[in-house]
Design a protein around this nucleic acid. Structure first.
Lengths: 227, 227
DNA sequence: CAGGATCCGGTCTGATACTG
DNA sequence: CAGTATCAGACCGGATCCTG
């Protein structure tokens, strides 16, 4: 737990626990479905494993997270107390979308975007068989420019090297543009019309793309905005 | 601003700013109506003035707070961006009331309670003339045991020494009990019936007491609780 | 009233390596 | 896979005293 505030105000009690660096992001990851240490690390690549381990222990001591052993691994799950933070996390996101427009270049991490896209693939929309979506980001250095999502049988994998299969859909755009779409600032069609995004693939694939991901943009918009 | 997370996720962008220690409490104080440096200090007695000053500068740079000079003082006001954090602060309080029941003795600070009661006096219910409410906390060391609220013409002052006027209402209880009432865990009548609280004063004053303060308890209860 | 200056100590970062 | 170990350095927060 964080350093105490020595205040009985519930806001202070909540923040003693929640305002430590990384804590809310760990909870965000768990709300997004990550349960294993390694999954959490993928969503929090700049957090050291030592610190992640410490935060998980703190959250577990506070009763927001349970730790269970299961066939060869540890699984972390949110308790009801942890899950009830969801509307707050969503509201924080909504607030930031409204008031923190500017993203610096270092915030634009392609591997985080791909990791999040991978878990928002709209499974019911997937055609049978394999679907490969390739991404090429014009504004990213060559080493991190090319990415693939390989969907097969409801499984989705992220690759940062050519998986060998031909892409069913190719998306060429700036990382910044795709992040705008992810946030809900822009939609696929708007970006394409503006020439900021090009889709390669059959007409069917063109029509599929906007439905392929359940992006969080909608949730930020739902977040309570008073007035 | 805090150390960056280097994530484009709006939750991360929000927390870069908001998860620094004390920041949310400064915002809570401003939402509660504090505008001057000294008022803020009274609500945040354990925060050093240097740090408060720094936080106010950060919040101002981030566009959540404006600083204006006015007759012999500096006044801090929330911008729309800052004010829009209100539902989040309330939701955090509600969450903590539901999930962090235990308050340690060091959390029970009588001067914070008196400071907060003083700003929640229900002005319209005040009778004309002077009203003096005395408090005696059975579970607090003598030095901080006795407090008075002096209401006069819509002005309310907190005293930690006998103001000299005879008390119109006397409240004798444990600090812990009064804090439970403040949080909404208990109401005045319940506490009195249970023998945990004694009111001295006329019958009229007995009837006034439960309406004398607009306690935040109701707001925590309103806070969105999913499921 | 609204802070500035200073110093100390704790915490986080970041890198690397190791383990059951 | 799910961490622990270690270590240097940066940075932050706490405390105290001081000022226009």
């Amino acid at each position: 737990m964080g350093t105490p505030y020595y205040q009985f105000c519930p806001v202070a009690k909540a923040m003693e626990l929640l305002d430590e660096r990384w804590t809310m992001l760990v909870i965000r990851e768990m709300l997004a479905g990550s349960q294993r240490f390694t999954e959490l690390r993928r969503g929090l690549p700049r957090m050291s494993p030592a610190l992640l381990s410490k935060r998980l222990r703190e959250l577990s001591a506070a009763g927001l997270v349970t730790r269970t052993e299961d066939h060869g691994g540890t699984r972390y799950l949110l308790t009801p107390a942890g899950s009830e933070l969801e509307p707050i996390v969503v509201a924080l996101g909504g607030w930031a979308v409204r008031w923190i427009g500017e993203l610096g270049d270092p915030d634009l991490d392609p591997k985080l975007l791909m990791w999040d896209l991978h878990r928002h693939v709209n499974r019911p929309e997937l055609p049978g068989g394999r679907l490969v979506v390739s991404f090429a980001f014009s504004d990213v250095p060559p080493r991190q420019r090319y990415w693939w999502l390989v969907c097969n049988d409801g499984e989705v994998d992220v690759c940062d090297r050519d998986p060998g299969f031909e892409a069913t859909i190719g998306v060429r755009t700036a990382l910044r543009t795709l992040i705008k779409i992810w946030r809900g600032d822009l939609d696929w069609a708007q970006a394409a019309r503006a020439g900021a995004l090009t889709v390669d693939g059959s007409g069917e694939m063109h029509r599929l793309l906007p439905r392929l991901f359940l992006l969080p943009g909608g949730r930020w918009a739902q977040a309570p905005a008073p007035g």
